[in-house]
Every structure is written in structure tokens, then in C-alpha cells.
Design a protein around this nucleic acid. Structure first.
Lengths: 120, 120
DNA sequence: CAGGATCCGTAGCGATACTG
DNA sequence: CAGTATCGCTACGGATCCTG
């Protein structure tokens, strides 16, 4: 079903990108990994609001899509680090462009900034 | 719930952008409107695979978010045109960056291009 | 610490039928 | 043509409990 989009839209590059960044969580994970390697628990913190189920699931999918690499250390307590692959890193411009747009938008709509800042 | 992301992530610019481009459909609609005004039926065609429910719903939300403007003509049969607002147009770089990334990705992964081209 | 496995509610969405 | 309204499914995702 996640592939349907592409089937129907042929091979649109935009649709391709969306397909790999299918959920909002993945975008935020890439955002946070752009600054470097992060542990599972760190991501859990920085990607605020994500459940561990979604974090794990997203990371697994991103791994199999080649966006992220996983590095597990055989220590106790366990330590697992995630970092962007070259492919994942190549998404930097995409995320940055989104960040730029969002910044300008927030600057020009201080009202919404406020509304969103305080819960609902 | 669409706002939760922003509440919890403070006022992250990336999350802000995602919030307005919440669904894949909206991204594709912006993509198609970047080339100019389009009628409802044209969008239904170009955004392949979208149901009329989703198209209408997406357009309504984008309108209230200020991304799109609606122009209805009192003729029979009805004629309704949609175009990007200035805000919507300002998303051009975002979509283009995604398009660029997708192009490169497809070029470097001809296998996936094939896999996706033929259903499943 | 980094998860795997379940249970389960609900929002997202498609399909269908109807209208100005 | 460009919608609105309803019904009904399912899969997305949160909450919770358990483990090496």
C-alpha cells in the first residue's frame, strides 16, 4: 500500500521521496541524526512524542531502506547507536529546505507560533 | 492530533512544515499546482490514485491553511479552479528539493525504478 | 538499555450513492 | 462538473507488559 502511490504515479521523483520519508517520524529522525550519531534513548528523547514502538519500527524500516545504519555494542547495559548512511545524509538538503521554509513561516506568523507553543 | 507534534516538539521548523504538508496527497497537489492553475478534475487526474474525498478534503484544509486559493465560476457545468497562494508558491523550493533527491535516487537505483514501475 | 510482543481504539481512507 | 454525505473497514499507532 505504501507502494501504491508510486505504481499509480509512475515514477515521480517527488512521490519517490515521500515514499521513503513516509511518516513524519522518519523526517524527524533524519533531522536529529543529521547532527551525528545518536543512541536509541537519545532519539527517544529528541524526537519528542514518539513511542518506542514507532521509533523502533521507523528505524527498522529506514535501515532496510538504507537510510540508517545500526551499531549494537555487546555491553551491559546494551548500547545501540544509529547514524545516517550516505544515502540518509544525502537527504540533508531536503530537511534543510523544510527547516528554512518552516522558519520563515513561523517568523511571518508569530500568532501561530504562540498558539502552537502553548498546548492547543 | 495533527497539532500534537508541534506541541511536543516545541516550535521546530521542520515539524511546522510537516504539519502543513501533513499528508502525501498535499505534497503531490502542491507539486501539480506549481505548474499553474488547475481545475478540480485536472487535479483528480494528475494526482493519480487520489479519491475525490481525499482530494476535496485536502484542498479544503490547504485552503484554510492559506496554501491554496479556490475560484468557482457560476457556469453550467460548474468550473472550479485551484491555484497556489503566495504561501503555497513559497513551498516551491521544498518540493523541488524533494524532486531532486528523488531523481538522483532513482538514477542510482534503477532496480527500484523497475520494481516500482511494474506493479508490486 | 534496547527492544519484542499484544491488545485495542480510532482516525484515515476507499467505495458508494446522491445533488446543485 | 464539482462536490456532499454515509457506511464500513483496517492499519496506524499508543499503552502496557515482558526480556536479554
Amino acid at each position: 500500500m505504501s507502494r501504491k502511490l508510486l505504481e499509480q504515479n509512475g515514477i515521480c521523483p517527488v512521490a519517490t521521496t515521500i515514499d521513503l520519508l513516509s511518516s513524519k517520524w522518519k523526517v524527524l529522525i533524519v533531522r536529529d541524526l543529521l547532527t551525528g550519531t545518536k543512541r536509541y534513548s537519545e532519539l527517544k528523547q529528541s524526537v519528542a512524542g514518539i513511542s518506542q514502538k514507532m521509533l523502533t519500527q521507523s528505524l527498522r524500516e529506514m535501515e532496510s531502506d538504507g537510510l540508517v545504519t545500526r551499531h549494537a555494542y555487546a555491553v551491559i547495559p546494551p548500547k545501540v547507536e544509529y547514524r545516517l548512511s550516505d544515502l540518509g545524509n544525502s537527504m540533508r538538503p531536503v530537511i534543510e529546505t523544510m527547516a528554512n521554509w518552516g522558519s520563515v513561516y513561523l517568523d511571518q506568523n508569530p500568532d501561530k507560533r504562540k498558539k502552537l507553543a502553548q498546548s492547543e
